[in-house]
Design a binder for these strands. Structure first.
Length: 307
DNA sequence: GAGCTATGTAGAC
DNA sequence: TCTACCTAGCTCT
């Protein structure tokens, strides 16, 4: 589930599990074999995340850059290491844990220079203490691009993905078609603060929850025609598939809820393909300011084709 | 169990 | 703009 919070969680997990240990490094799949060999037997010093990018540092100033892409995973297990299952790009085995990386978009040995080059094209990360939201504001305030585009641009803000984009815009009543330069700074400030809190919560939980606690019951009722308080599956006990489905559906306001009523106003949540990604929003709560409505709302966006 | 879809990006054309 | 990456959860049968 690779939005920024997942990478920070992964970095923390690798750091706690391997930092300070000499590790065996290999590439069962073969595509990272020569680099994995260089790292074999070295001490893994630390792991850090910036946005959706993971950097694993080894002794000798070697740095591995990993980007999970859409469906990459890195799974940690207790030794002894089992026979690799599927295409394991990179395996590290330490005395306490081993981890398998599968399906990443990027897994490369980059060194410090390469790390700097990657960071140079990334915007501030709301999960990092050293982040500078002012850089993001400068980009947004001077751009004619729609907010739905700007929030997904990793050089504006690093770590936001499709879910946080949809949910953040909804929570602040901002139309995804509002131009960046039309956004008011107090709104941006509130969005940044909110995003930092949501993503920190995501790191803690290991999943994205943007629904306020006060709205959980109402959303569950909207989804199931009965209040969550009456649903024994939501009250501890067995973690069934049905329970997981219900819990996920009650964690967000608009993401993947097209055609369902908006919790705030009852309008049906809209969806459209926007620059290659699915965009979700409430057409009422996230209306464009009056002066913009007649003009270019939705330019570059294809209407929903699914019900 | 098969088929579909997705929280993303880089590179080729 | 299209394709590769080739996982894993969900839906449908």
């Amino acid at each position: 589930m690779p939005e920024g919070h997942s990478l920070h969680r992964l970095a923390r997990s690798i750091d706690r599990s391997f930092a300070g240990d000499a590790v065996e490094s290999s590439s069962p799949q073969g595509r990272f074999a020569s680099s994995a060999d260089i790292l074999d037997g070295r001490v893994l010093e630390s792991a850090e995340a910036w946005g959706k990018h993971l950097f694993v540092r080894f002794e000798g100033d070697e740095v591995v850059h990993v980007h999970l892409g859409l469906y990459g995973t890195m799974v940690r297990s207790r030794p002894p290491a089992l026979e690799p299952r599927g295409a394991v790009r990179w395996r590290i085995v330490g005395p306490r844990w081993y981890a398998d990386l599968r399906g990443p978009t990027a897994c490369e040995l980059v060194g410090d220079d390469g790390r700097e080059r990657i960071l140079a094209r990334l915007g501030p990360d709301p999960l990092r203490r050293d982040s500078e939201p002012g850089r993001a504001w400068q980009r947004i305030a001077s751009s004619r691009a729609p907010m739905g585009t700007l929030l997904m641009d990793q050089s504006v803000i690093a770590g936001i993905g499709n879910i946080y984009r949809a949910e953040l815009l909804f929570r602040h009543g901002v139309s995804p078609f509002l131009e960046g330069r039309e956004l008011k700074q107090p709104v941006f400030d509130a969005m940044w603060t909110d995003l930092s809190a949501l993503m920190r919560d995501g790191v803690k939980r290991g999943r994205i929850v943007t629904l306020d606690a006060a709205d959980v019951d109402a959303m569950a009722a909207l989804d199931s025609d009965r209040p969550a308080a009456d649903d024994p599956e939501l009250d501890g006990g067995e973690d069934t598939q049905q329970m997981r489905r219900r819990r996920r559906s009650t964690g967000v306001y608009v993401y993947r809820r097209e055609g369902r009523p908006c919790l705030r106003c009852g309008s049906l949540v809209a969806a459209a393909d926007h620059q290659g990604r699915r965009l979700y929003w409430c057409p009422t709560c996230q209306r464009l300011p009056r002066r913009r409505r007649a003009s270019s709302a939705g330019a570059g966006t294809r209407p929903a084709t699914r019900a």
